[in-house]
Every structure is written in structure tokens, then in C-alpha cells.
Design a binder for these strands. Structure first.
Length: 830
RNA sequence: GGGCGUAUAGCUCAGUUGGUUAGAGCGCACGCUUCACACGCGUGAGGUCACAGGUUCGAGUCCUGUUACGCCCACCA
């Protein structure tokens, strides 16, 4: 036991010991019933570390530590989500490169030390190698943080979402979806990011309020009369295929079935009726373009309209005018971005007199890719989908049912799941026209013209997985047949990152690769995660497990809250208010930061609060000092707890153990911490103060106190261990062998005492202190006479603590007498 | 427009099936070198529990409505 205990340096010390001794190692010989398995969220390693990265993980860790002490064998892995767009974008900026899948692999390629101004084009394989190199660095930084903050994960159980294990699982699951008809490809209009040049899924969309303007434009009827529409996207006029109004709209009913002519471009388009047309919006009649937004897609499909494509995948207008559109005016727009085209066409419409009045500015919500910078466009392309109930009521109902089977903590988070599933408007688009991801594991035969035969893809054997169809060969083909008529071509797309992350329980459990392990951990016990990815990660994991295994992937899910900056604003890089954890861990200590994180109620948004961290540090320090003090008393031989004050304390502590246990069973770590902490401060301020003189006294009564102190100390350390793993371990090693984190959770069941003995003694002691405070004198000042008047029942309880009260209050004469409750304190000096 | 959540002391939050004068910590004020801790200890002042109704012997707690804030979703011409 150190002379002067300190928190300094205990993180390094104990993290090293835990690693060396395998304190948190998973025992794969344990039975399923004895295992608690956690589907840890794999953090996106290409992002910066911030407090949000620490918050939820620490809360989960407290639950993991509790379960471990309850005797469970923890399967607590860590994954790194390195797969996907964020990594690509970071690699592009970091190395100054750009992926060109057409280029051949250069095995000798090395990126320059400083990124060049103009990006260097490199092959897909070279690009992927850079992605792997950079994420390896990032993963080291994350692991260092997790170890520093004391996550009790088993570092032998790690995976990356781009690694071969994940690729194999991801491709296997996809092929099985394909075989069962759950995965399918379809040529269809889809939302498209023109910068990333990829399709995006419904789950990755977000609305942003954008400025725009209504342009009132006249179309010409057959009799020469004009009909006016209002549009925010006049540049799509050449793509117009119809006008549409609500079927009940009397203003436009006479026009239904007739045709009108588009201004400038002279295309003849029908006027149609559809329920989705809103008479209140604009002029009540809208132009349908292929495609301006998702409503256009619905109208186009349901009204069976032709296609007039004008927008390329690069976000620029195509060079050739579509059929039926006048070429001369279109030529002025070809090759322009939508923004440039809008400017020009407004000028042209103004000149021709088809634009009525000035454009009327508005702001309106526009769909963006959540990681994108420009509004999404709609382009037609061939994409892969997995059925998720977005198009079929039956599967949707099944998935809603799965959501009901899952135990949500807190329960109200289930509403977000139901909201999302009920609002799906299409299947899950999983293909991405990107590079750093798990490839779609398919090839296509090429016909005599070199066109792919999509209807009959070449499927690899599961044993061959993972495959990269852009470099691996399909069975029975040779490399010189790649890309030539009569030969084959690999599917160029990769899967959405969620298509792989949706399999984290299977990946971590080594599905099909290690049947023994898998059977011991799957389905898992707990999925902890953030609220913002219920619609993506949680839902997609349920979808994959439901389709593949016919069950839930886990029994419980714990949804953590959001971390806000100290001013209760959402943290974001763009606002520059991101708080990074490492400096805080250094300033306050890991236990203190953990204390702050575990003070946040489950599912409740919590602000970064330095004051709370300070309190946490104070608690950890107090734990060291109080423990040192209690351990400094003479050690008593085993025997009975004879004194009512000691019995009262242990009985009260038993209630705290019961409350903390019950709270943890319901995943409410915060309540467990709060109950324990409240008791601990009273224990220090009242109980220890009352008994310390007795404990030194080398009497029978001293033995009782010392036995009680040891029991209480053991118990409190264990109760705090899930929250303050470093400080509790430090204290534990002073008087025990082995790690506290492998000890059994306390089951104290002392009922012999009456907690009121301690409460009332505390009240009287408070009165004595109050008198001394009022006299502005030291607490050591003697009390010549202490009179306590109360009911006979309460006096009886106080008498049990009489000797301790006399000691703690430095009292000469204690008088107990019946009467109206009152305490009279006569100070010796007075 | 739909859904969910929150509203209690200056600040951050507890308050589990409705039960006597509503709690904690921080901050603040005033004290105290008390043999573990001055990164400490003690005492104290702070609240018409968002608002309006209702149920009840009794409401911070249950019901209805209103307001404010936050988050999620929605077909954005």
C-alpha cells in the first residue's frame, strides 16, 4: 500500500497488466449459456476521434464488466469499419490520388511524400492498397484510445470490415440471398451522387434546406392558349415528358388527355392526372421530367411515360438532345452542369417570352447523400437490391415482428425502428460504383457484340470466396477472355458498406469458418449502438439475420444517447466544436471520463461536461484515500459483526447491492453508479467518521467495525469496478491477489441490522457539526454536553450508536431524554 | 404533415407501481490545517416541479390540452 496513493499513471500500469495476464481473454471452451456476446459497433476508422467515440463504448464496457463479474464469459470483440467511402475520400486527400479502374496494377507504386496538387490516377488495386495502409494507421490510434479508456475487449477478437473474413462472409451472404431470390439486379432510375458517381440508398439520404426559385413557364395548347407551370428546375425542360395535375382539379380537367408543346424545345407532351399532384403547390400543374426527383419517377412509372434523359452521371447535360426535342436550343445547354444550364435556359426563356415575371425565390428541402456536397440527381442505371420489405407487405410485416421480439433499451427506441420500416419505399440498394469495398462476386458472359448477358451471371463456389471479379477469373475462363466478345466481364461494382456491416455478428463469430465458435456466440446477447444508425446498421443486421438464419441476430439492444458539445450543441466537424478524448483522458484520467460517460442515462443525449469529469476524478481519488484509511486499521480475525451501527451499515449496503444489480440487469448502468456513489459518500462522511475511533481501539467492538469495514470495502470496490476499473484495480491489489475484474459480483445479503441506526446517528452528528460550524470553530472542538430529545423508539436506536457518537463528536456527556425532537449542543469553549 | 423524446434549484441531473416539510452534485456563501484525502472536510442559502384543466382523501408522479426545445421520418413540381 503506497504512502500517498495517486491516480497518476495507473492507466498505463493496469492496461499493461491486463494485457499481459489475459484478464479479458475470451474462453472459447465455455458453453453458450455461460457466454455473454456483444456485437460491438466497429468504429469508422477514417473519421477523427471525438467524445462520441468514447461515450457509448464506455457505457457498453460497464455492462460487459458487470456481466463478466456475474460469471459470464465475455465475447467482446472489436471491429474496424474501414470499408467504404469515408476511407476513399480520406485516401484521395491524404495521398493526392484518384482511382481509375481502367489502369493496370503497378506493383512498384509508392505514393509521393507530399500529395501533389493534381491528383495522380492509379489502378483500383493500388488504390485499395493505399486504403489498407492508411486504415492500419488509424486503427492503431483507435486501439490506443480504447486501451487507454479501459475497454475490456479481447484484443485477440478483432476484425476489419474490408478484411478477408468480412469479404468472405459478405459475399457468401450475398450469394445466398441471390440463390433464394432475395437479391436481384434491376435497371431503374435511382438517386445518384454526381460527385462520387455512385448510386445511394434510401438509408443514406438526408434533406437539406436549399434556396431555389419558382419559375413560371408557359406551355402552348393546341388552340394556342397557354398553360402555366411553376418549376424550380427549368433546366430540365428538355427532359419534360408530360404535365400533371390532380384528377379533381377543375382548372385542369379540360386539359386531361390533350397535348401541349414545351417552350423552346417544341416537344409535344400529354397532360395527365395523378393523385400526387398537389393543387396547392405552384400553379397546381407540374411538369414531369425524367428525372427531376423521386416523384417524377413515381409519375413516370405509374403513368407509363417515355424517357427523355438529358443528365449524365457526371452531373452535366448529355451532348445529344433526346428524341422530339429541338436540337438548336438544346445545343446551348449540352455539356453544362445543371447550375450553368439553369442560368442559360432562364435567359433563353426570358428572351422567347415564355418565362412569366421574375423567378420567385423560395427555400425548399432537397435530397442529399449524407456524405455528399451537391444535390442528388436521378439517373437510370443497373443496380443490385436486397429485399427488405420496402416493396412487399409480407416481408415488411415479418421485419416489424422482429423489431417487437427485440428487447430495446430504452424501450421507446423501438418506435424509431417501426417508423423507418413502415416508411420504406423500396428495396435496399446495395451496389455502389466505387472501389474500396467488397466486390459483388459475379461475372457475366459477353455476347458476340461484347455486351454482358446479365440474366445468367457466373457465380463462384463458396469455397473460393472472397473473390475480386476484376482480377480473379470465373471457373473455366482465361485472362485473355476478359472483356472480349464471347468472353466474360466481372461485375465492376462493390457493395454498400452496410451490406457488410449488417453481418458483424456473423463476421465476429466466424460464421461457416469456425462452426464451433459460431455456435457458442450466435445469436448474440447484446447490440449496443447509436440512435442515428437504427435505420441503417440495426435494421440491416436484422434483415440479413432474418433472411439467412430465420432469427434475430441478438436478444437485446442498448441504444446510447448523442454526445453534445459543452454548450449542448450537436458536435460536428464543420462547426469546429468537436471535443477529442485524449487530452481529457490525460487531464482528468480515464476513470473520470468514464464516470462522466456512465452518468449519462441510457439513450439520453449528454453534453461534454468537464465539471462532471472533475467529480469523477474526485470520486476515484476518494476511493483510494478512504480505502487506504480503512485498510490502516488493525485487521480483525474472522468472526461476527456484533455492533448495531456496523450491522446497520451492512444492511444498507445490501440494499445498494440489490438496487445496483437490478439496475444492471435492465442495462441501466447509470442508476447502478448513482446508487453506489450516493452510498459511498455517506459511508465515508458518516460511517467511517463514527467508527474510526472504535476501530483503532483493539476491543471486541473494534473487531466488529473492522470486519464490517473490510466487507464494505470489498463490496464497494466491486460495485465501482465496472465504472472505475483503474482505481478499483489499484486498490484491490493492495490487499488481494488477482484482478478485481475477475471477481464475483457482490451478493451481500445482510439483514440483521436496522439502517435507521446509522441514519439517525448521522442526523445527530450533523447537528453537532452544525453547532460547531455556527460557532466557526474546528470540528475537533469538544462538546461538554449533548442532549438528544426524541421518541422512545428513536432514542433506542440512537443509544446503539451512543459510544460512536461520543467519539465522533468529541462529546463529554451524552444525555438521551424523551420529548419533542431536538438536539442541544453545548460546546466546551462556550 | 407524421412519430418519438425532453421540460424539477443559477448549471447538470435523480425522483421505480401517486403518499407526510421535493433530493444530489457543481457553482455560490460562510467556516475548518479533524491523526485518509486542502485535487480535502463541515455548514448554509437557493425550487408556485413549463403552462392550463381533470381524476383522486392526496399529483413532480396518472389523464387531456397548450407552449418551448431536441431528434427521426415524409412525394422537395
Amino acid at each position: 500500500m503506497p504512502e500517498r496513493p495517486t491516480l497518476d499513471g495507473i492507466e498505463e500500469t493496469w492496461a499493461g497488466v491486463w494485457e499481459a495476464q489475459g484478464t479479458y481473454a475470451f474462453d472459447r471452451t465455455a458453453n453458450r449459456a455461460d457466454i455473454f456476446s456483444i456485437d460491438t459497433p466497429p468504429p469508422t476508422v477514417s473519421g477523427s476521434l471525438h467524445m462520441g467515440s468514447a461515450f457509448g463504448y464506455v457505457q457498453t464496457d460497464s455492462i460487459a464488466r458487470y456481466q463478466r463479474m456475474r460469471g459470464k464469459v465475455l465475447f467482446y470483440p472489436m471491429g474496424w469499419d474501414d470499408n467504404g467511402l469515408p476511407t476513399e475520400r480520406r485516401v484521395q486527400n491524404y495521398y493526392g490520388v484518384r482511382c481509375d479502374p481502367q489502369l493496370p496494377y503497378d506493383p512498384t507504386y509508392e505514393p509521393p511524400a507530399d500529395p501533389p496538387k493534381d491528383p495522380v490516377s492509379i489502378s483500383r488495386r493500388n488504390f485499395v492498397e493505399l486504403c489498407l495502409r492508411l486504415t492500419a494507421e488509424d486503427e492503431k490510434a483507435f486501439e490506443a484510445l480504447w486501451r487507454r479508456i479501459g475497454l475490456s475487449v479481447d484484443w485477440a477478437q478483432t476484425y476489419t470490415t474490408i478484411g478477408p473474413v468480412s469479404q468472405r462472409a459478405s459475399q457468401r451472404a450475398f450469394l445466398r440471398n441471390l440463390a433464394r431470390g432475395e437479391a436481384y439486379a434491376q435497371e431503374a432510375p435511382t438517386l445518384w451522387d454526381v460527385d462520387f458517381r455512385t448510386a445511394v440508398a434510401q438509408a443514406e439520404l438526408e434533406d437539406r434546406e436549399m434556396p431555389g426559385a419558382y419559375h413560371r413557364v408557359g406551355f402552348t395548347q393546341s388552340d394556342g392558349e397557354k398553360v402555366y407551370i411553376e418549376t424550380t428546375r427549368p433546366e430540365l425542360l428538355p427532359a419534360c415528358v408530360a404535365l400533371v395535375a390532380h384528377p379533381d382539379d377543375a382548372r385542369y380537367q379540360p386539359l386531361f388527355g390533350s397535348t401541349v408543346t414545351t417552350p423552346l424545345f417544341g416537344a409535344e407532351v400529354p397532360v395527365r392526372a395523378h393523385e400526387l399532384a398537389d393543387p396547392e403547390k405552384g400553379s397546381g400543374i407540374a411538369m414531369i421530367c425524367t428525372f427531376g426527383d423521386t416523384t417524377d419517377v413515381i409519375w413516370w412509372r405509374e403513368l407509363d411515360l417515355p424517357v427523355r434523359s438529358i443528365l449524365g452521371r457526371d452531373g452535366r447535360l448529355l451532348s445529344a438532345a433526346p428524341d422530339g426535342v429541338a436540337e438548336a436550343p438544346y445545343a446551348e445547354l449540352a455539356g453544362k452542369t445543371t447550375k450553368q444550364a439553369q442560368k442559360r435556359i432562364v435567359e433563353m426563356l426570358a428572351e422567347s417570352g415564355d418565362l412569366v415575371g421574375e423567378p420567385r425565390p423560395i427555400t425548399h428541402p432537397v435530397k442529399f447523400f449524407e456524405k455528399g456536397d451537391r444535390p442528388l440527381e436521378v439517373v437510370t442505371s443497373r443496380q443490385w437490391y436486397i429485399r427488405n420489405g420496402g416493396r412487399d407487405a409480407g416481408p415488411r410485416e415479418e421485419l416489424l415482428q422482429r423489431g417487437k421480439e427485440l428487447a430495446w433499451h430504452p424501450a421507446h427506441m423501438q418506435a424509431r425502428y417501426e417508423n423507418w420500416v413502415s416508411g420504406l419505399n423500396g428495396d435496399w440498394l446495395i451496389s455502389r460504383q466505387r472501389f474500396f469495398g467488397v466486390p459483388i462476386p459475379l461475372w457475366y458472359r459477353l455476347d458476340a457484340d461484347g455486351e454482358p448477358l446479365y440474366d445468367d451471371p457466373i457465380v463462384p463456389e463458396e469455397s473460393a470466396l472472397p473473390v475480386d471479379p476484376s482480377s480473379d477469373l470465373p471457373p473455366g475462363f482465361t485472362e485473355d477472355q476478359r472483356g472480349v466478345p464471347g468472353g466474360f466481364a466481372g461485375d465492376a461494382d462493390v457493395m454498400d458498406t452496410w451490406a457488410t456491416s449488417s453481418l458483424t455478428p456473423q463476421i465476429a463469430g466466424r460464421w461457416e469458418d469456425d462452426a464451433d465458435l459460431y455456435a457458442r456466440v450466435f445469436p448474440m446477447d447484446l447490440r449496443p449502438q447509436g440512435p442515428e444508425i437504427i435505420r441503417t446498421w440495426l435494421f440491416s443486421t436484422v434483415v440479413r439475420s432474418h433472411l439467412e438464419h430465420g432469427c434475430l441476430p441478438w436478444r437485446d439492444t442498448a441504444i446510447n444517447g448523442w454526445v453534445l458539445d459543452p454548450d449542448r450543441k450537436k458536435m460536428s466537424k464543420s462547426k469546429g466544436n468537436v471535443v477529442t478524448p485524449m487530452p481529457l483522458l490525460e487531464e482528468y484520467g480515464s476513470d473520470a471520463v468514464r464516470y462522466w460517460a456512465c452518468s449519462g442515462r441510457p439513450g439520453t443525449d449528454t453534453a461534454v461536461d468537464f465539471a462532471q469529469m472533475k467529480v469523477g476524478r474526485r470520486l476515484a481519488t476518494k476511493l483510494l484515500n478512504a480505502s487506504k484509511f480503512a485498510l490502516g486499521f488493525p485487521e480483525a480475525s474472522p468472526g461476527p459483526i456484533t455492533e448495531p451501527v456496523d450491522q446497520a451499515m451492512l444492511t444498507a449496503l445490501s440494499a445498494v447491492v440489490a438496487a445496483a444489480t437490478e439496475a444492471f440487469e435492465g442495462y441501466d448502468y447509470a442508476r447502478a453508479l448513482e446508487r453506489t456513489e450516493t452510498f459511498f459518500w455517506t459511508f465515508c462522511d458518516d460511517y467511517i467518521e463514527l467508527v474510526k475511533n472504535r476501530a483503532y481501539s483493539e476491543t471486541v467492538e473494534a473487531d466488529s467495525a473492522n470486519r464490517a469495514l473490510r466487507i464494505a470495502l470489498d463490496t464497494l470496490l466491486k460495485l465501482f469496478a465496472p465504472f472505475l476499473p483503474f482505481a478499483t484495480e489499484e486498490v484491490w491489489c493492495w490487499f488481494h491477489e488477482g484482478s478485481i475484474h475477475r471477481q464475483a459480483w457482490p451478493t451481500l445479503a445482510e439483514k440483521s441490522g436496522n439502517p435507521a441506526v446509522l441514519t439517525i446517528a448521522g442526523e445527530v452528528l450533523g447537528q453537532v457539526r452544525k453547532a460547531k460550524s455556527a460557532a466557526k470553530t474546528s470540528m475537533r472542538t469538544g462538546v461538554s454536553r449533548l442532549v438528544v430529545r426524541d421518541s422512545p423508539e428513536r432514542l433506542a436506536l440512537i443509544s446503539f450508536a451512543g459510544a460512536d457518537l461520543v467519539n465522533a463528536g468529541v462529546v463529554t456527556e451524552l444525555v438521551l431524554e424523551e420529548g419533542e425532537p431536538a438536539v442541544e449542543v453545548t460546546l466546551a469553549d462556550a
